[in-house]
Amino acid sequence: MTIGSVYIIVVTTITIATLLLTWLQNRRQVSSLRNQYIKQITSLLLSEQPSSVKILARSRRNRIALAEAIYTVVSHTYGNDTDALRHVVEQNRLESLLFREIHLSHGTRRARMLMLLSAIPLNADKVKQLSHYMHSHDRDIRISALTVALASSPSMAIRTIATFDFALTPFDTARIIALLRRGLLPIAYEPLLDSNNHNLRILGLAIVRSFGIEIAEKHLHKIISAEEDITIVNQTIYTLASLGRPLHHTRIRERLAAMPACKRKELCRHLTVEGYSLSAVRSIFTEQESVYAELLINSYKRALVHA
């Protein structure tokens, strides 16, 4: 057999496999199945007698669709009846299915399964089996594993985040904030802002921004005055801006003066979009830097005189 023949056989096999995958992709109608389960779960949660509503998924495909439906419902609602959901999870053995899928899969699929697991009521002891995924080199896997750990034992949230080896990115904090919005974690921002841990401080600032906690202003000023980490200082200034608080304090000005020119320009643009007045912008930036802000702020006013 020549090299040409081998090549033809290999390429033909790949082509057939790809066509098969495409055909399977067509057949998979998980979204419609998921929608059916979403309706059933919603009626279960709204029902006065949850035990009268039975949700059953037999095949593996149906059980994953059910887990996705639970995730969708849980991530869009607040304060669900956990017992009713736990009953559905136990009835369909979703926990064991997801654990098996997590161990057998890898990459994005493993991260997805972890994400689904974060929405179902779990035993905290079982979650310890997944703790090694928090050290994964794959960013999606480790943050999904972190959300599972946080959702399963909210009282340990601060310790879990503090021991997390990697710096949280803005997107990671957004995913943790999503847990807070579901009511799974306490919104205790003070210990986070007072902490020396980088991740906890970043999360504390994100909580202040997301929930518009104006009473945190004193804490923010304290961070601006004392903090040495420039990233935290910048985030704190942006957090103050998102609360709409004045930024003309001496210490803030000093910090702004130490910023690189491009960062100052970005902040100036941000303040303008956030709705700061021209005089407020002028009080902290030079005249040259405020030109853009002036143009943009003026463009929000109706033109009474047409050129």
Partner: peptide
């Protein structure tokens, strides 16, 4: 893989834009 990841990551972020690095 990127398309699968897109479906994974865009599920959670609605309403959290201020946390995404102010982008």
């Amino acid at each position: 893989d990127a398309i699968h990841r897109r479906d994974l990551i865009t599920d959670d972020i609605a309403g959290c834009c201020e946390s995404l690095g102010f982008v």
